[in-house]
Design a protein around this nucleic acid. Structure first.
Length: 563
RNA sequence: GCGCCUUUAGCUCAGUUGGAUAGAGCAACGGCCUUCUAAGCCGUGUGUCAGGAGUUCGAAUCUCUUAAGGCGCACCA
């Protein structure tokens, strides 16, 4: 039941506003005891030439109040109170029937949506910064999928570019094969850093590296073999992390994948008269749009990331005929994507409008010493290990008899980290302090997982209890608030899609968990004398656990039955 | 220099697209486990919503402006 729509239609009968504009005006009153929905009458004041509070009063007396408990006018507001018994019953039954699919819809109608995310650079360590794209992208993938979109997750690996020339040179000169076998990324990083150190003394190394990359791009066998080796070794490491985070991709088509699609792209740009030569490079002039030029071909004839992104976008359109093509990449690259999208538009592709850059801020550490413990980065593995070990310590302290402690600790620790990454507005920088991760109190992943575990614990105890539920007896403010929140699950997901913003779901879960804990703490459930009320409460508990579980899964976080 | 972003309680942040008395968490202090998991619940807040001007019934939210900070501006990604 969509109350907004019902209200809008009834107000429409009495005013000259469209239902859509009315729906947009409808809001939630700041206090629950003021009602569930409110319609502000101020905008009507002009056309109706009456004071808002008079309009509200008149609407109140004439409006069809069927299905509402009551309708009140307060000042210029018309406040609606929905029928509690109905909403209780409809919401809880829906959650229990739909179970794992509660909150889902098929609004996406099977349309293809590409989510490019994670996209680490081969041969470089996966550090705490990479988790932004990975967590946000994975979550968007799940959120969109839950609403019937057919998502294609692409890990646009950074497996091409000048750095491979450097790596090839470095491997030939300095690699320690044994170390490479033991810990590939560490060794590759070591020689990569060494390359830069040496290049400062000997600038010809840079030139050498550029040549080797050009050779790689031209398909020389020796370079090709080394490149493949570097890629295989790195991917093996990355996949360990992806498994740990339970992140999957439908495609690993990285930058190198588009190497053979560059020539036709450049040809097409030429034909469309978009290329100009500038300082030896081929560029698309974007000065008409107040942007620096988009470089397509460097003066040495090699490609650059813009070239590969252009080729990738066209390839994706031809292959997937996408409804949206989403790039989960940090905000520092905003200009780059604006240039690429504009170039696509100039090429005459209307679908350039369907390309979206979903940006995010940087991960910073409050205590900078921590961020520099190993070189100048914190590896993601370290962060996860720290969170998991802290979680294990807490289990030992609070629930030492718990079975499968290590497994539970892993889920809680990783859940805590993901939750932190997905809690804030994604464009904001995340300021981490080691304490934030160690602290599992308050609005955190462990808090919502704990709420879920509490609910499940009750439900285990209630197994075998069988009585008909009387939902009209859930009439306390706290019970109804919880029901209301649960009923708003789907609209929160849709809002998250509209904004490409997983944090909307994260915050929603916190609200549900808070409302649940409040309810849990104040009202007896198992020890409730009235069987029909007890049944109603138990079903409300179950509806809550269903909601928390489904919502957390949209963030890529698993629940635990006990903790 | 140009462009984009940020600025809300001691700290970290929300604020549903312009609505009712600006809210959470952390930290601090006090209370609640002989009843369903205390990783919980309840209570305690004198905020220049960075400053100024404007738009209107109404602004943390929109416009202009000033300040502080961040990011980006051609062969790295």
């Amino acid at each position: 039941m969509d109350y907004k729509k019902v209200i809008a239609e009834r107000i429409k009968e009495m005013t000259n506003l469209e239902t859509e504009t009315i729906e947009k005006l409808i809001e939630q009153p700041p206090q629950p005891d003021m009602g569930d929905y409110a319609f502000p009458c101020f905008q009507l004041a002009k056309t109706m030439r009456k004071a808002p509070n008079i309009i509200a009063q008149e609407l109140k007396t004439t409006i069809n109040s069927n299905g509402f408990e009551k309708i009140e006018n307060v000042g210029g507001y018309l406040n609606f109170f929905v029928g509690k018994a109905t909403l209780n019953e409809v919401t809880i039954k829906k959650a229990l029937e739909e179970k794992d699919k509660f909150g889902y819809s098929d609004i996406g109608n099977g349309k293809n949506v590409i989510v490019e995310f994670s996209s680490p650079n081969i041969a470089k360590p996966f550090h705490v910064g990479h988790l932004c794209s990975t967590a946000i992208g994975n979550s968007l993938y799940k959120i969109l999928s839950s609403q019937g979109y057919n998502c294609i997750g692409i890990n646009h690996l950074g497996d091409w570019g000048t750095q491979f020339g450097k790596l090839i040179v470095a491997i030939e000169k300095w690699v320690d094969e044994e170390a490479l076998e033991r810990d590939a990324i560490k060794e590759l990083l070591r020689i990569y850093v060494k390359f830069h150190d040496e290049a400062e003394k000997d600038p010809t190394l840079e030139e050498c590296a550029r040549q080797r990359f050009k050779m790689l791009e031209d398909g020389c066998e020796k370079e090709r073999i080394l490149w493949q080796k570097i890629k295989d070794l790195s991917l093996k490491e990355f996949n360990k992390l992806y498994e740990r985070l339970n992140v999957k991709f439908d495609s690993y088509a990285g930058e190198s994948f588009y190497n053979d699609k560059i020539d036709s792209l450049v040809e097409e740009l030429k034909q469309k008269n978009l290329l100009t030569e500038s300082k030896g490079a081929l560029v698309v002039d974007l000065s008409d749009f107040n942007m620096p030029p988009c470089i397509v071909m460097k003066s040495d004839g090699a490609t650059i990331y813009a070239t590969r992104d252009l080729a990738a976008a066209i390839y994706r359109h031809n292959t997937y005929n996408f409804h949206k093509n989403i790039y989960v990449v940090g905000t520092p690259q905003a200009l780059h994507f604006k240039q690429v999208f504009k170039t696509l538009e100039l090429m005459g592709y209307q679908w350039a409008d369907d390309c979206v850059h979903v940006g995010f801020g940087l991960v910073k550490f409050e205590d900078k010493k921590l961020s520099t413990r190993k070189g100048d980065v914190v590896f993601l593995d370290e962060l996860l290990d720290e969170a998991v070990s802290r979680s294990l310590k807490l289990i030992e302290e609070k629930n030492p008899n718990l079975e499968n402690k290590e497994l539970v600790a892993e889920k809680i620790g990783i859940g805590a980290v993901l939750f932190t990454y997905l809690k804030n507005n994604r464009e904001r920088d995340i300021i981490f302090s080691w304490d934030d991760i160690i602290n599992f109190d308050g609005e955190t992943g462990p808090y919502v997982q704990y709420s879920y575990a509490r609910g499940r614990s009750i439900l285990r105890k209630a197994e075998g209890f069988n009585s008909k539920a009387d939902y009209s007896k859930l009439k306390s403010k706290d019970e109804f608030e919880l029901v209301k929140l649960i009923s708003q699950f789907n609209e929160n997901i849709l809002f998250a899609i509209e904004k490409y913003e997983p944090s909307i779901v994260t915050r929603y879960i916190v609200d549900v968990a808070k409302a649940f804990n409040k309810f849990y703490n104040q009202y007896p459930i198992m020890s409730c004398d009235d069987d029909t009320l007890k049944a109603a409460r138990l079903n409300l508990v179950e509806a809550t656990t269903v909601t928390i579980k489904n919502a957390l899964s949209l963030l890529g976080i698993e629940v635990v039955e006990k903790m």
